[in-house]
Design a binder for these strands. Structure first.
Lengths: 334, 334
DNA sequence: CTGAAAGCGCTAACAA
DNA sequence: TTGTTAGCGCTTTCAG
């Protein structure tokens, strides 16, 4: 089942391959009639360009690499969906790898992407500095990079993020307004960019309502259900008084919430819980989780557009696209 | 930042490109010394083979397409992880697309995969017949296909599945043994292969315990949280008496469970709930969900191996690999 | 406006 | 054991 090639087409039409190629690629140096003839024949013979050959010739692979930290939650899936949709529409394929929150795996994935000659890379970094050197190297060797969500602020590349500061501030304000005084912030490790942004939002919300910031209410933990659980455990064990938790991610929030419930602490009566992400997860747990919703699909679309822009126009930007978030108040707070 | 090519290498070594190529590819027709020299030089100059060129020459793309029905749950992610890991190890890249449970999107994805010249396809079909024609066509045109989980029984391709019948039977037995008499089966639409297998397990478990099968307890619904919810709603509205639900997927089980709770029906006291899949979702909901766990990662590994086997050995099998499931009893049943 | 020819980087006959 | 050569399917100068 050999597929029909440009050569076949040119033989059939008694034209040169170059003419056929030009017709197909919409070159202006061609008579309209010949163009139409070629297009018709291509249609009829079922001609499909061989991307591999095209790639070799053009030195591009028409593929975009995506590296995400995890895929346990629908977070990445939603973004990838947006990327995929946009990319395929413009003739790019998408290759996904997950770092599993391990900077070394992330590094290997980057290297792999290079070996596979992806044209560009979209990445959410599991560590804000660890692989910066590679990213710079890639940039310099002509592989553009776009960062989203978990970015490295120092890297001079386009970025797609949400307003972490505002989102965090809004949700903490909501907690305060509903009468909470001792609000824990379940923080992510420092090597995650957004962690500090959301901390700022948390602190400013407190200040604004004349609540003082208490570092005992700051618990650093891993970005997992388990991390959230352990953090809650630690809080109880240390006998720290708190009536609300704002967690860096929904996952952590859910982990904490489930642990508290197991200890017969009522959510939201005793402790209100709020997260950040806004994936489907937040609506299937009990009670439903108050969270800051991010436009994940759109973020993916934007990231894809940014990378393709660089590819097509050879245009180096450092544009930062900031999406707004939406506060979703649900049963875990009141 | 041009990368070093075979030609560069051959010029540098004053050897022909073919010799260098042979050395690198581990051809036996080469003197050990020259081989070593070449390998050394390749290392030193940082030679990386250009896969695109290789692809064009060999008529292969060294990429594997994966088509999954959804990525909202970690189900697909786990399988993909297994596929990815195995594939990359053997020099293949993985390209993922999701059909979103829409056979037409699945079809488009298949076509896209072909356009991108993937060497083989791993797929979990959202509809057991809709795209069979394309699959057959692909097979015949030399693109091998491996099916997993949601298979099409009639397709003569390798398949990776779990023992749906046994898994379903075991979990329903567990429900019966814990005193449940009126067990609902939330069934998936008929166009999903496993739906009928699990139904068989359900029925046989009933028969075995002399419970009669009541078709009123069979509710067909969509494979989503929402589907589960609506099914539960329907059951209540119809005033059907039931003390347990066995759902086709965890997602559906969770949807139903959440709805019942909202109606102040206690799980597991009034109604026990069990699912099928065994992803992390089942452990983060409240109460934790009893489910049939599938070895998703291993299924991915196996699927990747099966496709690569066909690719490398040009070996057409129709091997069906059946994995065992594990019954995970949690708080949603007792 | 069209054709001839070269070449992207690699592999694999075929020769030597 | 090594080199020569052709060619995978396509684009793109350069001539005509």
């Amino acid at each position: 089942m050999k597929s029909v090639t440009l050569k076949d087409l040119s033989k059939y039409l008694l034209l040169s391959t170059s003419t056929v190629s030009r017709a197909l690629s919409g070159d202006k140096n061609i008579r309209k009639e010949t163009r139409d003839v070629v297009l018709d024949a291509a249609q009829k013979l079922g001609y499909k360009p061989n991307l591999i050959a095209k790639n070799l010739k053009l030195g591009r692979s028409f593929s975009i690499g995506v590296i995400v930290p995890e895929m346990v939650t629908p977070f990445a899936a939603k973004v990838i969906e947006g990327i995929q949709q946009t990319a395929v529409l413009k003739g790019y394929r998408v290759m996904v790898a997950q770092s599993s929150e391990d900077p070394e795996i992330e590094r290997k994935s980057l290297l792999m992407m290079k070996e596979f000659h992806v044209d560009g890379i979209i990445m959410s970094m599991c560590h804000k500095t660890h692989n910066i050197d590679l990213c710079v190297e890639f940039q310099e060797s002509g592989i553009p990079i776009v960062l989203y969500d978990r970015i490295a602020p120092s890297l001079k590349v386009p970025k797609v993020i949400v307003n972490d500061y505002e989102g965090a501030k809004a949700i903490v304000e909501h907690l305060i307004k509903s009468g909470r005084k001792n609000i824990v912030y379940l923080q992510a490790p420092d090597y995650i960019y957004n962690a500090t942004e959301r901390l700022r939002g948390y602190q400013d919300a407190l200040y604004q309502f004349d609540l003082k910031f208490d570092s005992k209410l700051l618990v650093k933990t891993k970005l997992t259900f388990d991390g959230g659980m352990k953090a809650a455990k630690k809080l109880l064990k240390r006998n720290i008084e708190f009536d609300a938790i704002f967690a860096f991610t929904d996952t952590m929030a859910i982990g904490a919430m489930n642990y508290l419930r197991e200890q017969d602490i009522s959510v939201p009566k005793d402790v209100a819980i709020a997260g950040f992400s806004g994936t489907e997860l937040s609506t299937i747990v009990y009670p439903k989780l108050t969270t800051v919703e991010q436009p994940l699909h759109d973020m993916g679309v934007e990231a894809a557009n940014l990378i393709i822009q660089q590819l097509e126009k050879n245009l180096k930007t450092e544009k930062i696209v900031v999406f707004d978030t939406k506060l979703k108040i649900r049963d875990s707070t009141c």
